[in-house]
Design a protein around this nucleic acid. Structure first.
Lengths: 290, 290
DNA sequence: ACTGTCATGAAAAGAAATTTTCAGAGCGAG
DNA sequence: CTCGCTCTGAAAATTTCTTTTCATGACAGT
């Protein structure tokens, strides 16, 4: 049953080492555009891979299948599994029935946003930002607007556990000047500014820059004015079938950054988290003696 | 090339009228679990549909295809189109390259979470919750824990714009009793409680129930203790390749609910949003005269 | 250079799948 | 009831696919 449990892709990968040249060539052809490339007849896939049909037979038998039909049947099952998930299923509904349930329309939009955002996003930018956030000498200031304030808070709450020197600016701008006053060169100001850009964000960014702070902006595809002042900007797709913009993808990037930072300084973070657990425990005991 | 432009499904539907009994039987078998059911050989699909192979050939020719292989090739193209959507494509990256960039690993996990959550989620539950949230006679109380507080805030901020009678409980439990005191029968308490369940959430839920409030819980796949007291619970998959749990899918559901509520009372909401814009404008002018 | 081993594909053999043929069944019209 | 029509699947014919066989060539070790 070892074959049945794993995906065909897994099986191919685990056998890559024992494949011959022509077989590897075939394997790569199959994995490229997997699993659709394996849908046709043995003749077709042999031609696509530029090998002979006996090579195909030999390889699938080497992989543990009884023959090509057996191999293909496994592939069909995988295609079915892939295609029968709710999201893929939705894509098919969507073509035929535009008015499906809102959950599906949302899922569709979010997938598109995520894909587009990841396509546009340079991993180097991500890595650079993660490195900046990991630098404990830099104090982190988080700020968001009316809607995005919750994202800033979410990011802040995690970073506060992971590292020292973090601050959350209220979304009310009246308290900002005092924070700016304390900023030192190299500090980071992380701004969330999604459309209906708040003019004050750009002012804040300018003030922070004057104090020598670096600026990181999370904005939408059109770009906050604050993004022009930023060292790094994340342009996130935010469109949803809704009167509101979607923050799901922004949160996605925030979570990925949290993990990247945590990972790069795991030893220190681990200690901090342990200490924090202890403090929580104490608070609890303090509140409820007995 | 009218055949090439349309999907096989469309072609079948448009021909349903001119199909004979056995052919219709076959067509229904194909449309059921489409397009995967058409992946096998003509023999297989004939057997599945309970008709003879000549019937299959006659039907596909009636549909305008040259023969079964031609028909199947079109189907393969459709499967490819469906399966090559961003999500499925990403799944394949992730499988093929286990050690890829954290963004990709995260995207993979989120896709899985979303898929699983949508599979488990009953749309009736969603619709019921949306209806409860739309009922303006019920006051909404939002509460979250240390991490999930930001989600509660996000939800609250939107609902506050959309409808009256909303309140956000601080994540600090000391202020909760006064809110409970004001709860009336039919009011809704929306709780976010993800693992490291906070004991106080269950206490809060119990107290709210005694006051006649209905409870809606957002929790993880293991289930908060508060979920037992809830009228409706959303069990969200929260696993991420991280030391932290992911809130992305929870946010997804929240956003979908926001849209559902907004949609069900659009006329009233529109007025509120206009008024709100006006108020913002006034505040701005007030702050910066000139 | 010789030999043995292995990989590879051409081609033949074998096995399925696909299409065609055709006879019987069902059914409505006269 | 009979005729004519269509629908249907069994079975034959055909085509295609799959597997096996085998000759060739590459290459490492002697």
């Amino acid at each position: 049953m070892s074959v049945a449990a794993k995906t065909v892709s897994d099986v191919i990968h685990s056998h890559l080492g024992v494949l011959t040249r022509a077989e590897r060539q075939l394997a790569e052809s199959l994995l490229d555009n997997y699993p659709v490339s394996g849908l046709g007849s043995i003749t077709t896939i042999a031609e696509n891979a530029g090998v002979s049909t006996p090579t195909v037979v030999r390889m699938v038998q080497k992989l543990g299948y009884k023959g090509y039909p057996d191999f293909q049947q496994h592939l069909h099952q995988e295609v079915e599994a892939t295609i029968s998930n709710p999201i893929a299923k939705h894509d098919r509904w969507a073509q035929n029935a535009p008015g499906t349930h809102i959950l599906n329309r949302f899922a569709d939009a979010i997938m598109g946003n995520l894909r587009q955002t990841l396509t546009d996003l340079d991993t180097a930018t991500f890595d650079n930002v993660a490195a900046l956030l990991s630098d404990r000498k830099r104090t982190l200031y988080f700020v968001g607007g009316r809607i995005t304030g919750a994202l800033a808070e979410y990011f802040f709450t995690h970073m506060q556990v992971i590292r020292p020197n973090t601050a959350l600016l209220s979304s009310n701008s009246s308290s900002w000047p005092q924070y700016v006053l304390n900023m030192n060169p190299g500090d980071l100001l992380i701004i969330f500014d999604i459309r209906r850009y708040e003019q004050e964000m750009a002012s804040l960014a300018t003030a922070a820059r004057k104090r020598g702070a670096e600026i990181i902006v999370f904005t939408d595809q059109w770009g906050s004015p604050a993004a022009k002042l930023a060292r790094h900007a994340f342009r996130v797709q935010i469109e949803a079938p809704s009167a509101w913009d979607s923050s799901v993808v922004t949160l996605f990037i925030v979570e990925a950054l949290i993990e990247a930072v945590q990972n790069s300084t795991w030893d220190e973070t681990k200690e901090r988290m342990k200490t924090l657990e202890g403090l929580f425990e104490q608070t609890r005991l303090f509140r409820k003696p007995g």
